[in-house]
Design a protein around this nucleic acid. Structure first.
Length: 702
RNA sequence: GGCGCGGUAGCUCAGGUGGUUAGAGCGUUGGAUUCAUAACCCAAAGGUCGGGGGUUCAACUCCCCCCCGCGCUACCA
């Protein structure tokens, strides 16, 4: 943190993209740490707003709509509702969870765009882009496939070949075709507005490289440095698309703002909406956690424009460049907005040894977790918190989840609270006893108790949430240890004053646990407060030896956590495997159809059934088999690239489909006359195409 | 290829600005205990800190080289 004095906080969590459900990796990356941070700030009495919302523009939304055979609007409504509901059930304490499809967001985005435009800060450029004449849309790189110029892979994407890994641009692809229509795209001129990032390099160097070397996380700082040193370039802030925010210029028909231009502005719009809704009293998206009722509609500006506001973005590492370079440049360029003081981006959380991915079916989706464990939001919060990818990618396993629940939440925290409460009920009818003379152990434990809120708070303020969570659990350990050392159950026959003192202290510890657990385990915290018959308290109350007053009647003590049996965990692991398999099968890589041909085109091909008479390996070749094929017309030599899938013995005597009028070609010094046709499966394996019943060599295929 | 971030006990991970016997939780082993969801509490075993050089009185911590993992490489949200 800089030496600056801050009087309020604006905290954002990455806007989830509303093209599908979100998984626990997203939670670990941004939402959970953000929520812990904000809840802590509120408890310490800070002026803080916590904003988030659904990101509902970009090319992937209409694309998902095509996939689900519906409209973009239906897609965003569906996933916004799903994500919103999950966040609510997981205790995300947003002051507002907004949507970028809302009018106020369109206005805000257009205002900022125009502000930049009117200041002459955007440059116009005309370039040629691939256009799908049939779908009548310009194609994003990802939606163009073709032959990789480097390795010959036939399904390289316009931005990258997944086979050889090389970075491409669509223009490099050989025989490009649109994944939408399958047709060859045409080049068409189009005009766009660019933000000249390179002009802000000196400012970025000063702001990030100089001013934030100490306080930004190494992964974030390093990533920014890498970008800046590599040299920044103008970046297009508009797209040719009919889904999004219209470019507010006269000559911009069919153009929208780049989704990464409008998405982060969503934080600002959400803030505006928050104050509009709270001041008008009509709450639609806002769920204000602080008292904003005395606020003014224009107060949103304080949170985005006042120099004494501390702006913090919680994101995953995939968002670093947008939140540390592009968005700050946008904000800075307008001359009206503050830039983030910190961007504590997390790395990724892997799952059972592999990268989490919704599309590959290898993930734990929020809504599925909540469906399977409806009463356990805090268990997930805890399991994620203790293993956040703060410095490097981390790993979530179901076994670990179970262990964290059974060995820590149940055995340490739940057990301590249960012991203290049950003992009080047993010996004092559930009424909190008085504290009498203190022993050395008592004094020591009370001193220790006092330190924990400070310790935990320090870790949270430094964005070390794992450490903070571990400290929380350590406090429960202190409680267990205290009971083990003082053994009140043994003294119950001889010295009830002593027992009372011990239980008073044990319950004070439980009271502090109720407060300091709130940011991490809000649902548990609430239960604990009810159990101890205390209301809402703030962080300053934590550690106080007189937090709970003697004479307080405790409530019946339900167990805070319950054990999770092996069977439940095994079932989850099985479910994970099953989902992955199902997705793999469902996701037959449906390669788009090739460009249309005429019947004549087709009939020019002469395809026959032939019989393999001889097959042998080719020296120095991994892929080739040299085949002698009886085509009915003749016996000819065909070089076939199937050696990685078939041995010569496999194919000997087999009937195969062969293209006989393909121009002959020398391969590895041998004249190859024709081509054996194969079915290539999604995993890349090849299968021979043979007639189901034997036919005479030379039979025509048509 | 270039750049960035990582590679620390069986597992998951901590280890500002170099300095006594390298830490935590889980797991393992042993002990103690019975208030508690056979939980708690105590103790022990367990690491040549990816490999190799170098700087230094001293390096997990700084520099160089190599190996491995992840990410970025700029119209994938």
């Amino acid at each position: 943190m800089s030496t600056k004095q801050y009087n309020r906080y604006t905290v954002t969590a990455a806007l989830p993209y509303a093209n599908g459900p979100k998984h626990i990796g997203h939670l670990a990356g941004a939402y959970i740490p953000a929520d812990v941070y904000v809840r802590y700030l509120r408890l310490t009495g800070k002026d803080v707003i916590f904003v988030c919302g659904s990101d509902e523009h970009g090319t992937a939304i209409p694309n998902q709509a095509l996939k689900e055979n519906t409209t973009p609007k239906a897609i965003i409504d569906k996933y916004d509702a799903l994500i919103r509901d999950c966040f609510d059930k997981l205790g995300m304490s947003f002051d507002i969870y907004h949507r970028t499809s809302e009018t106020i967001h369109h206005q805000t985005s257009q205002e900022i765009f125009l502000s930049l435009y009117n200041k002459g800060l955007l440059t116009e450029e005309v370039s040629e882009q691939y256009f799908d004449a049939e779908a009548k849309v310009f194609l994003a790189d990802r939606y163009i496939v073709g032959i990789c110029p480097k390795c010959g892979h036939t399904n390289a994407f316009g931005d990258q070949c997944e086979k050889c890994g090389s970075t491409l641009s669509p223009r490099e692809l050989i025989n490009p075709r649109s994944t939408l229509s399958g047709k060859a795209p045409i080049l068409k001129e189009t005009k766009h507005w660019y933000l000249p990032l390179e002009k802000y390099e000196p400012w970025l160097r000063d702001w990030i490289l100089k001013s934030h070397q100490q306080d930004w996380k190494p992964n974030v700082y390093g990533q920014c440095k890498s970008w800046i040193e590599a040299g920044l370039q103008p970046r297009a802030m508009t797209r040719d698309l009919d889904w999004g925010i219209k470019v507010p210029l006269p000559d911009a028909e069919g153009k929208v703002l780049y989704v990464w231009f409008d998405a982060p502005i969503g934080y600002i719009s959400a803030t505006r909406a928050l104050f509009e809704e709270t001041t008008s009293g009509k709450l639609k998206y806002a769920t204000p956690r602080s008292n904003f009722s005395i606020a003014q509609k224009e107060d949103w500006k304080k949170y985005w424009q006042a120099e004494d506001t501390r702006l913090i973005h919680f994101i995953g590492k995939d968002n670093i460049v947008f939140h540390c370079i592009i968005f700050p440049v946008m904000l800075h360029a307008t001359g009206e907005f503050i830039v983030p003081d910190n961007v504590p981006a997390n790395e990724f959380m892997n799952l059972e040894g592999d990268k989490m991915s919704t599309s590959r079916g290898w993930s734990i989706e929020m809504h599925e977790y909540l469906a399977d464990f409806p009463d356990k939001p805090d268990v997930l919060r805890y399991a994620l918190l203790t293993n956040l990818p703060e410095a490097k990618d981390s790993e979530f396993t179901w076994k670990d989840f179970q262990a964290k629940n059974n060995n820590e939440l149940v055995a340490i925290l739940g057990n301590f609270v249960n012991r203290a409460v049950v003992l009080t009920q047993k010996y004092f009818e559930g009424v909190l006893p008085n504290r009498k003379a203190l022993s050395e152990v008592d004094v020591k434990v009370l001193a220790e108790l006092k330190q924990y809120p400070v310790l935990i708070g320090g870790s949270v303020e430094a964005f070390r949430f794992r450490e903070a969570t571990a400290n929380l659990m350590d406090l429960a350990r202190v409680g267990n240890k205290y009971l083990a050392e003082t053994e009140p159950w043994k003294l119950a026959k001889s010295d009830m004053d002593r027992v009372g003192t011990i239980l008073n202290i044990a319950l004070q510890i439980a009271g502090t646990l109720a407060i300091v657990s709130e940011p991490f385990l809000p649902f548990t915290s609430r239960k604990l407060k009810e159990m101890l018959s205390v209301g809402e308290m703030n962080w300053n109350d934590a550690g106080n030896p007189d937090l709970l007053s003697a004479g307080t009647k405790l409530q019946e003590a339900p167990l805070l956590f319950e054990k999770i049996e092996d069977g439940v965990i095994d079932q989850q692991i099985k479910k994970l495997m099953d989902t992955k398999r199902a997705v793999e099968l469902a996701q037959q890589p449906v390669e788009p159809a090739k460009a249309e041909i005429s019947f004549d085109d087709f009939s020019r091909m002469d395809i026959r059934i032939g019989k393999i008479l001889k097959a042998e390996r080719v020296e120095k070749s991994k892929k080739l088999l040299k085949l002698q094929v009886d085509t009915g017309i003749d016996v000819r030599t065909v070089m076939s690239g199937i050696a990685e899938h078939f041995t010569p013995e496999d194919v000997l005597g087999k009937e195969v489909t062969i293209l006989v009028n393909l121009a002959s070609r020398k391969i590895m010094g041998v004249e190859s006359q024709g081509m054996i046709l194969m079915a290539s499966d999604k995993d890349g394996s090849l299968k021979l195409l043979s007639p189901t019943n034997e036919v005479a060599p030379g039979a025509k295929v048509s």
